[in-house]
Design a protein around this nucleic acid. Structure first.
Lengths: 204, 204
DNA sequence: GTCTATAGGTAGATAGAC
DNA sequence: GTCTATCTACCTATAGAC
């Protein structure tokens, strides 16, 4: 159920539009997703999009980036806290990501990645929105790694690396329809974290 | 100069169209790039696109993915061979990538990344083209790492990780307009490679 | 406030002059 | 084989009925 979903039953129209937009942007990107298609998937009349998002496609996209991006970050963090040992937890998180990806026919990965690459050089408002989300994720990841890696710079570098290698692994796994990239990504992150824990003096 | 460029002077029309398409797809993605814009940037008449690429936008895009993708792989490999020590070489390659990215206003990164995310769930022909290129890169990277890492599985995992963390770093650096993600990526790859060289028995 | 119809513009694709 | 004019379909956005 969406963020602003009603207590029970079907989410309200605005929420359905945002949820449908999130799924379509994730699969088809920004330019590849039409507002008519969003309205159809949300089972909402076309005019409702401009009723709830008077700023049009850009406003809807910005809210989608910020809402879905923040939710995705929380989901990954929660996933990392289901296993006690940090190295095992990281490896487990990538396996879970591979399970999800495979279960959705290699469609549902990061909700903002495709849009981020499309707008980075073409739409400053949306570019800043994606940058804010990535920055938020790095900060949250840095705090998580800081529990086991005392050096702040090392924790920050690990957070960057986790996000980057996950995004890259999603790209390769979606393109090749193969779990192997995600598995290799999880192994590498496990090595990096173990190295940072065992050898605090060396750069990571 | 483009792959089929003439011996001297201006490249031929077909090459100019492909080169323009490569740059536009890299910056704006597949759906975000119109054929009229490609013709304009190539300084070619619109009809020439269908003269040289009778299959239309999809054929032009597929050829662009395969040509620019293979060239980009060769370029990165060549960059890795400019420094003798492998760990230093990897770190140097990411610094060079950051220099290039910054010099182009955070626009010119991987030529197929944006298209790959857009078509992965929407266009099977183009999805396969991106998968073929990624697979080609992994194979080439595997051979490069095998020079210093005897275990084939470890070399393959390192190749996957290099490509994935580079793609992820491009995504974050373009979005945030900051070199830091690319720098962190280079440091992490250096740690991974050093770990694989020094501890051949552990997974990498 | 929900929804339909449509305007204005641009997309990919094609026909045909030269 | 180079180039222009145009077709149909779809896009975002808006006007206005209910």
């Amino acid at each position: 159920m969406g963020q602003h979903g009603q207590e029970q039953g079907r989410p309200d129209t605005r929420t359905r539009i945002q949820d449908a937009a999130t799924e379509l942007f994730r699969r088809n990107g920004y330019s590849g997703t039409g507002l008519k298609r969003i309205a159809a998937e949300a089972d909402a009349p076309f005019g409702s999009i401009y009723h709830f998002f008077p700023g049009g496609k850009q406003q809807l996209t910005e809210e989608t980036i910020r809402t879905a991006g923040a939710a995705y970050g929380r989901m990954v963090l929660a996933l990392l806290d289901t296993v006690a040992d940090p190295v095992e937890s990281v490896a487990h998180a990538f396996e879970a990501a591979a399970d999800d990806l495979e279960a959705t026919g290699y469609a549902d990965a990061c909700p903002i990645a495709a849009v981020a690459l499309e707008v980075a050089s073409t739409n400053e408002t949306l570019r800043v929105a994606t940058a804010d989300i990535f920055t938020e994720w790095v900060g949250a990841g840095e705090q998580w790694f800081a529990r086991w890696v005392p050096d702040p710079g090392a924790a920050r570098s690990l957070a960057h690396s986790l996000i980057m290698i996950l995004e890259g692994a999603f790209m390769l796994s979606r393109a090749t329809r193969d779990r192997e990239p995600l598995r290799a990504a999880g192994q590498s992150m496990a090595v990096l974290l173990r190295s940072a824990i065992e050898q605090p003096g060396r750069p990571s």
